Amino acid sequence: MQVTGVDAFGLVSMIVQAAHTARRNRDQCQLLAQHVLTVGGLLRRLEIPELMRYAETRKPLEQLNDALFRAYKLVRYCSQQQENTSKLYQMFTGADVALKLRQAQEEIDRYINLIPMITAVTAICARVSSK
């Protein structure tokens, strides 16, 4: 799956939908889904095409999209029925998956924290290129 700047909105929607069907780690999946909804709301307020024009600002946004895609795969994993695994195995892996869900949220936050710097760099690049 190719993930581009505008795909973040689609990934947010996919994460929320997958969280609704999560069977394991349901609470963690719901928390992550609520968090990415907030992130999606923030991203909607940005001029994504403008931010994607410059390599310096495009890279962290692409990394954010990659982080959202990894979060989606994790939440999707929680929604898939694991018929071939024992309850004992699922119990032991549940804590590991919960940790990975929390780490996914932290990774998304790291990129969101860069947004003010990304927008400032974009403004500088736009001014320099217009001269």
Rank of each mutant, 00 (worst) to 15 (best):
F92V: 13
T21F: 06
L32D: 08
A95S: 14
A22W: 04
R44L: 13
A18K: 12
A95K: 12
C29H: 03
A33S: 15
S129G: 00
P60Q: 11
A95H: 05
L46H: 03
L37K: 14
T38L: 11
F69G: 06
I115A: 12
T122S: 15
S79L: 05
R58N: 10
P116L: 09
A95P: 00
E106Y: 05
L99Q: 15
V121H: 05
L88K: 07
R44K: 15
A126G: 03
M52P: 10
L43S: 09
E106V: 07
E56Y: 01
Q30C: 04
E50M: 10
R44W: 00
P60Y: 03
I115P: 05
P116D: 06
T93Y: 02
L74A: 13
N113W: 02
Y77K: 09
K59I: 11
N65F: 00
I118F: 03
Q82N: 08
H35L: 06
Y77F: 14
G10V: 01
D7M: 10
V3T: 13
R127Y: 02
A8S: 06
L11A: 04
F92K: 12
Q103A: 15
T21D: 14
L88R: 06
P116C: 10
A18N: 07
Q30T: 12
I112Q: 09
V97F: 01
L101M: 14
